[in-house]
């Protein structure tokens, strides 16, 4: 099976109420996710260092497909002062701002990269989130315009990922 390293859209940062036991850990994993949006998220999957969030619909699609290597948890998603800066002016309204912010949940990655459908790696060259071909196919049925995807030829600890 093919695997891909992906870097989703980054429309915000970890908020003050995020909890992380070790900011030095790599790959970084938060224990509690508070995502503070700086601007309107356009995609169904977004991230910040240490956390990936997906819309509830996408999470359900992953679950229905019986993908492995992830858990779904609640995330606190807020808009901060910077979000108001971006979207507070009537002159710069866009259609997207007319839409309610999607209901995001935390996609906690617990699988092994290159084995399960979701896994995290520490690599200089690749982005941390590694997903299977099957997961990518589902992802692509949703709105994902700002997600970088690179096919993984080999993974640390694995001979080949193909």
């Amino acid at each position: 099976m093919k695997f891909y390293s992906i870097l989703p859209e980054v429309p915000g940062t970890a908020g003050n109420r995020s909890v992380c036991n070790d900011w030095n850990a790599r790959p970084l994993q938060l224990e509690k996710v508070h995502y503070e949006l700086e601007m309107f998220p356009e995609d169904a999957i977004i991230c910040t260092n240490g956390a990936y969030l997906v819309t509830r619909e996408l999470a359900e699609a992953f679950r229905m497909a019986k993908l492995k290597g992830f858990e779904i948890h609640l995330a606190e998603v807020t808009t901060g002062e910077k979000f108001a800066q971006w979207h507070g002016s009537p002159e710069t309204e866009t259609y997207l701002e007319k839409v309610q912010i999607p209901d995001f949940v935390w996609l906690k990655v617990v699988g092994s990269p290159g084995i399960d459908d979701f896994g995290l790696i520490e690599s200089q060259d690749l982005d941390p989130l590694i997903i299977s071909e099957k997961a990518l196919a589902i992802l692509r049925t949703f709105q994902v315009q700002d997600c970088e995807v690179i096919e993984v030829k080999s993974l640390p600890g694995l001979a080949t990922a193909s």
Partner: peptide
């Protein structure tokens, strides 16, 4: 802002 600078800092 979203797509490039934030991603560069992410990396």
């Amino acid at each position: 802002h979203n797509g490039k600078i934030n991603k560069d800092w992410f990396r």
